[in-house]
Structure formats: C-alpha cells, structure tokens
Design a protein around this nucleic acid. Structure first.
Lengths: 304, 304
DNA sequence: CAGGTTCTGTGAGTTAAACTCACACAATGA
DNA sequence: TCATTGTGTGAGTTTAACTCACAGAACCTG
C-alpha cells in the first residue's frame, strides 16, 4: 500500500484523547505529559488540514469530522492490536473455516452443507461470509470461495463452478409488466449490487440494447440482497445460474428471457499454500468439485 | 483502546517490505535507506518475539506467521489510509445509507422496501449489512439498525420492534424426528450463530432442561445463515418473531413448540446526532416505527 | 572458478520526532 | 474571588529514526 498515512504515532495520541475527550486523561493512559498529547494532536491537525477537536476553555470535544475519523482510526488500530495479540498467542483449533462470498454461501453451499456433514461427520465446518479480497479479511480462514480466476499470492486456487447470468424476477412482476424482449426491461426496475457494478450494462450491450434506460435502478450493498429483492418482487436481477436453479424449479423466480446468456467468471476455492498439507482441505475441495460437476457447468481443466 | 500496539512506524516499514519481499525496494518506496528498513524490521521482530521473515543469502521471504500478520496489518493500515483520504476529500451525496444487521435486512426490511419506495420515490435508499458495532464500521451510514438498547455515544437511538424467540425448523425435519416437548430436542441438531452465542442455553434453561445435550450443534458466522440452514432442514434454530412470521405463514418453517417464548432484545434505529437535523431521517424512522406497529410487538415508549 | 552484482545486517554517528518542564490562559465551581 | 482542572506552547532534553560505511552471503555471468 502506498497510500498516504498520517503520522502514525500521533494516531495513538489522537485515539486516546478522542475516546476520553481529554488530553490529560490520554496523557495518563499513555504515560506521557499532557503537553506531548497536545503537540501530537496539533501535529495531526496541521498535517490533515482540519481541526479534529473543538476547544472551549480548557476542554475539548470532537468535531463531527473528528468523530468520523475516530471510528475508522479505532477500527484500523483495533485490527492491528488484535493481529498483534493473535500473533503472540496462536489459537490452534481443529476445524475448517470457510469464508465464502455471501451469495454463494446462501444459494449454493448452505443447501448442500447437510450432505457434506452426513458424508463427513468428523469434519467441523464453520461458515463465514465476506465479499472482501482474501488479503483483507479480519479473521483467518482455511478455505475461501471467491469469483475468479484471480491473483491470490501465497495461495492455491482452482475454479470449480462456472456461471452464466440471465434476467430473473418474481412471477408476480410479469403479471403487471410482461417481458417478451430485452426492450421490455425499460418498464422495470433493474436490481444491481456493488459487487457486480457493470453486469446490467454488459448484458444490455450483448442483448443489442445498450442505450436502454430502465424505469429505475436499485442498488444494494450485496448481491444476495439484490436476489432477495427480486424474490420480493422489487425488480429484475441478473441471476446467476446454475446457482439459482433451485429457485427457478420452485417457481419463486422465473427467467422471462433465455438469450443472451452471459458466461461470466465462476467460482474458485482458494487455500493458503501451507494448508494444502492438510488432507481435510483435499476432502473438502474434492467434494466441492464433485458437487459442482453434478449440478452445473464444471469448468474445463484449468490450473490453479 | 488500551490494547498493546506495536511500534507503529515499524509497521509502515514492515508492510512495504513484506508486500515487496524486499528491504531495498521498501526503502526506495519509503525514501529511506535499506538500513533504516532493516533496523525497523528487527525492532518489530524483537518486540513481537517472533521472526516475520526467513532470511537466506541477502533475500527475505515472509514466514507463515509474517504472512498472516501482514494481511491484518494491511487491513488496519488501509482503513486508516482510507479514513484519512476521505477526511481530506469529503464526498457528500444525497442518499440515505442504512446499515442493518443482515438478518433484519433480509427477513424484515427488504420485504418492505418496495412499499417504502412507492411511498417515498424521492428518497434513495442504500442498504448495507453488518453485524459490527456501529463504532467499527468501514463505511459511514445515516441510519443503523441494531439490536438494543445499547450504548452508542454520539448517536440518537430508539427501540421500535421487540422480539421473541421460539424453536423453528423445516416441516420435513419433524417427519423424521417429531418434537412434542423440549426433551425431544436431544435428537436434533441445534443451529446457532456467533451473534447469539447463548440463545439456546438460555432457552433450554427456561424450558426446564438446562442439561439437555443435543445430537449436535452447528455454528454459523451469521444468524441469517443459521436461519437459511433451518429452512434447508439442517436442524432447529431459535427463530425470531415476528420477523419470521412470513416464513411460518408460508410453511417453510414451523414452530413445533409454543413455550417458552423468550422476549429478547429487539431492534433499534440509530442515527448520528448530527443527522437528526435532516428531515429525511425523521421520515425513515417514523416509517420504521409505523411498519413495526402494524406487524408486531412495538415497544412501550422508551427514550433513546 | 573467479569476479561482479544485488541484497541484507549492523556499528557509529547524525537528525528529527517525541517528550518533559515550566509557565500562561480560560472555564468552572465553591 | 480564589482554587481547581484542563489545554497551549516555548525552550530544552531524550530517544527513535535515520544515514553512512562496511561486511557477508547468494546468485549470475564470463
């Protein structure tokens, strides 16, 4: 990371002073004089170019900007402190922690987890979800599921499930506004997620209607929220197949259009290189590949 | 935070050296000599008590411990760098960002979002999800939904929806192993989440069977994963009502037992004090309260 | 195999950040 | 009005961070 960092030692003083709303109390906590804290805060404010505290008669109170900065600085420093504490006290537990992107966890992995556990009752799985790049996770993991291929230094990865996208929506939506061609999407709300920002534009281009303006768009922080919104009749989502096949089979979602069907980046399992010595990881990754082969488009052989 | 922080300036050198796997390259990036970087790394390793790099013949490579530390240090430093950049370039947008805990977003809020948008087409909502304490979020928000009451300095909050918990499961589960009394739970897998770690123990205690040992327990990182697992027939979850009423009505979940029904901490909206000057926040919070009053247990008047 | 190149390790000395000390000023409370 | 508490800051001190110079090791090339 080459982004500009502020004077880091000053952050320690800032965090304490802001949390306690007192330079003197912060000085006590940090075992320095209040003058040191005062100078550090002044240095930080000068460097940032904005006041972080309001002063009134020997008392300080965070400004709104200072408050916003504090919560993020605390988050950053907490992560560093926690990482440091963990490093000093390794906590070795025997379980496989899977960190999956939320949509995959909910619509593909979770419905199959029971089968895995019946087949492997001796393996304890713990499922976490995150959209983040694996290099930026708060907690360690043994296996990650992310869309790929991708660049994951220090890890082994392998694609195991391809994906294609089609417009999907609740059947009730079509009763009010039928969709027979891509042009009909102009009457609808298109649902999208931060994690797939260009999906609709790409699909519309392939469909031959790049300039189409929908009635509205609805943005969600996570794709699974967009999918749930579609099930709730809020609009049309570009649904991933074969992941949503169960919902199509159940009739909670329908695919009004069959073309174009865009093949997009599929799913990879990702493990730290050191974890590849663990046979349990092999059991799990083989199981993932077998499940993918039996339900949808397993990728052609591709090196990790 | 009074947790021990390592020498912070050394982290800057460590991050660069670790990312580039070169002290000389790190020195170039940081505009210091390689000797400065070497000394900083040595200081950090001495302070932590563990080597972070393997040395071989003038080359360095991260140890496994060093690698794990790097990803977390990078995360922490990135948050600080991003907070710093945001502070310098305020990005003022006109939209309401809601940060809700995932379960509430999916099962209560999202099904109602369409109604809100039809009633208020001029307000753009952006829905984010997180379990984190609001003081530790990566991104700013205008309104948060968390379970409470709670202590949220600098914010205004108000409970608007109470909650009670009952064992819920898929109907297919009862076909194989009926549940007529709390003792019957011994034959089942109890599903739980990190965010509600003591829920089952409390419920079993109230049910008069504190020593009951279930066939298994299954832990999930998020409560909504536990709920989805229950719908997929993986076990019994302590389901929140009235949130899951729609699923009970639809038959995807059933409540085999009606007692004891535990009233637990419900839901609060939380807004930064400064945001209370914004009339849009009032529109949204009043709408939340009205929706809660019409669907479930609205709390007795309680100050924020 | 020898020499050159590149990279890290470290002692000695230098520089600058961090700190202490002491005093000044302001708000609050008794 | 005076005492108390807290912040601001200049001057001086201390220590972390740094440069400089040299040494050692691995790798590459001729």
């Amino acid at each position: 990371m080459t982004a500009t960092l502020p004077p880091l030692n000053a952050l320690r003083a800032f965090e304490a002073a802001a949390r306690l709303e007192s330079f003197s109390a912060a000085a006590g906590e940090l075992f320095v004089t209040h003058g040191a804290v005062s100078k550090q805060i002044k240095q930080l404010e000068d460097w940032l170019g904005v006041p972080l505290f309001e002063r009134s008669g020997g008392r300080v109170k965070l400004t709104e900007v200072g408050w916003r900065y504090l919560v993020q600085v605390q988050d950053g420093l907490d992560i560093i402190a926690n990482a440091t504490a963990q490093l000093k006290q390794p906590d070795r537990q025997r379980r496989i922690v899977i960190n999956s992107i939320p949509t995959f966890a909910m619509f593909w992995l979770l419905p199959r987890l029971g089968a895995f556990q019946r087949e492997h009752p001796d393996i304890e799985l713990r499922l976490m979800t995150s959209d983040r790049d694996i290099s930026r996770l708060d907690a360690p993991f043994d296996l990650a599921i992310r869309r790929g291929p991708g660049d994951w230094p220090g890890h082994v990865s392998k694609p195991f499930l391809e994906e294609r996208e089609l417009p999907l929506c609740a059947p009730s939506l079509l009763e009010r506004l039928p969709i027979h061609s891509p042009q009909d999407l102009a009457q609808h709300t298109l649902l999208q997620a931060d994690t797939r920002p260009t999906a609709w534009q790409r699909w519309l281009t392939l469909a031959g209607v790049p300039e189409l303006k929908p009635a509205a768009t609805q943005q969600f922080g996570h794709f699974y929220l967009a999918l749930r919104a579609a099930m709730n009749g809020l609009g049309v989502v570009l649904g991933p197949l074969p992941m949503m096949q169960a919902e199509l089979d159940a009739g909670t979602l329908v695919a009004p259009l069959q073309e174009p069907s865009v093949v997009v980046r599929g799913y990879c399992w990702i493990a730290p290189r050191a974890a590849m010595n663990d046979p349990t990881i092999h059991v799990l990754t083989r199981w993932l590949e077998q499940q993918a082969a039996s339900t949808g488009i397993a990728p052609q052989s591709q090196p990790g």
